[in-house]
Each structure stands twice: as C-alpha cells, then as structure tokens.
Write a protein that binds this DNA or RNA. Sequence first.
DNA 1: CAACGAATTAGAACAATTCTAAACTGTGAG
DNA 2: CTCACAGTTTAGAATTGTTCTAATTCGTTG
Lengths: 143, 143
Amino acid sequence: MAKASREPKISAEEATARLRHAGLRPTRQRVELAGLLFQDGDRHVTAESLHDEVSGAGVKVSLATVYNTLHQFTEAGLLRQVIVDAARSYFDTNTGDHQHFFLEKEGLLIDIPGETIAVAGVPAPPPGLSVDRVDVVVRVRRN
Amino acid sequence: MAKASREPKISAEEATARLRHAGLRPTRQRVELAGLLFQDGDRHVTAESLHDEVSGAGVKVSLATVYNTLHQFTEAGLLRQVIVDAARSYFDTNTGDHQHFFLEKEGLLIDIPGETIAVAGVPAPPPGLSVDRVDVVVRVRRN
DNA sequence: CAACGAATTAGAACAATTCTAAACTGTGAG
DNA sequence: CTCACAGTTTAGAATTGTTCTAATTCGTTG
C-alpha cells in the first residue's frame, strides 16, 4: 500500500551513459542518485529529501555526497537550482525554460511550462550588467 | 572621502511616528533602525549589513534585535522580505508592487518599478490553492 | 513614580551546508 | 589482469545564517 507511486528507476546503464555524457565518472553513488532523479520528467528535491529517499531505498550514500552530487549535476547541466525558500535549496530535474508555483507552507514546487508565462517589459539592466535569466515564482497558499 | 553618500537620517520624531502608526513601541533601537532604513526610498539590507551599519554609527544594538526588528517591521508592512539568495535574506524598504534585478556575485539588488514588467499567462493554480503573489527576479551578471 | 508587560540582550542552540583529511574506487597503462 | 593514481566518498568537524532562552532593562499607563 505504501508503495512508492513512481515509475521504475531508469536502468543503471542509462544512468551511467547519462553521467559519462555529462563528463562525470559513473560511481556507484552517482549512478544510484541519477537513477532516482531521472526516472521521470519533473522532480524537485532537496539534499535532505534525496538523501532520505536513497537511504530509504537501502543504499548507503552520505549526505555530503548528496550535496556534492547535486552541485556537480547542476554544474553539468543535469539539474537546475531553484531558489524560492530562505531555509533550503531545491533542485529541479527540469532544466528547460519554465517557472514555478511554490507552496511555502509545504515546501511544494510545481512546474509551469515555459511557454505558458510571458514576461514583458524587462528593462535593460544597468550598464555593465547582462541578463542571465528571468525567474518567476508564483507563490500560492492553501485556501 | 569615505563619507556615507546617503541622505540624512529621518528624524527621531518621524521614525517614532512611523512606528506608532504601525503599532510598534518606539524603543531606542527601533527608532534608530527605522531612522537608518527609511531615510530614502529604496534600501535593500540583510540583518548583517544593517547590524554593521547601525554598529558603525556607534549605536549599540544586538544582532538578535536586528533580526527581531526586521521581522516585526516586515509583519507590520514596513518592509518586505526578498528571497533571491539561498545564503541570506534581504529586506526591502520598498513594499509596493515591484520586481528586482539581482547580481548574485555581489549580493546587489536593484528595484524594477511595478508597472515596468508585465507577467502574462499565469495559469490558475491547482485546485485548493490561490495566488499570493508573483515574484520576478532578473538575475544579472557583470560582463 | 511604581508596576507590569513588552523589548532587548548575550550566548547557547539550531539547521542547512561546506570543509577536511583519510579511506576507497574507477580507469587506463602496462 | 593488476597497479597506481587521480577522482570520489565519507564521517565528523566546522561554518554560516538565523532562532531561541532566560535574565535584564525599558516604555507606558495608572
């Protein structure tokens, strides 16, 4: 009953290939984490939540490694960091152009596809600066 | 040369009035902090930066009080909290509708007036949720 | 001006994250 | 197949920003 309602992990082979592609050595831990993260389209994890998940799956990975891995994946373009909460960092497996709903009370992030929202009128940044990207966070609450 | 290039502090009387208006007891520390914060239109501070500033001005206020005060001011609607950096919280003296440029490397926030940016196409939130507000952060870098 | 509740404070405590130094493990060379 | 080495992992300590605690001090009202 309390079975995880998620698609089966991607295979170790797929994960390995993905890691090599990104220039990362496919270690046991990275393969394991990639397997969990990239099993389906959209996941939002924190270091803690991912650590709990991987631990719960009976795999031994230290929290430090989870942090390292999340950052390496992010640098490699496999993940994107989402800053919506002062308390913790979220990582999103959707690296494409999109935005988020955020339910602060529950730490819940929901993707909004990139084409859905249009941001018009962003002024030119002050001289010497250039736009890196535009983040939209739609903060919501339970009613 | 190294003189602060900021307008003179608002008077203690002004600050006091403002605090009373917001239903806050005008204590020495709150008057002092309000004096620094509301001297001109747009300021973006962190607890640390404000503490350094007030300390530098020779006033003795504990860091705990700065934190307390920033939160109380925020609750009272005198400040607005801005979440753009996983590492620290910013507080903005501009409580009106507006958005931000953010230069992460330097922790620099720049206001973008509310009318400037238009966000279109925000989808209805999932059932049971309602929109609290829409934040836009234009992340910029030095070039 | 007394008294009481509100505010301040130093320092401890906390949570998330990063660092450190030592042990371990992929990988490519031989 | 095995070695050696750079890259990785790890436990635990350290750091950072923030909150809490309990005792002291202060503003306000009577």
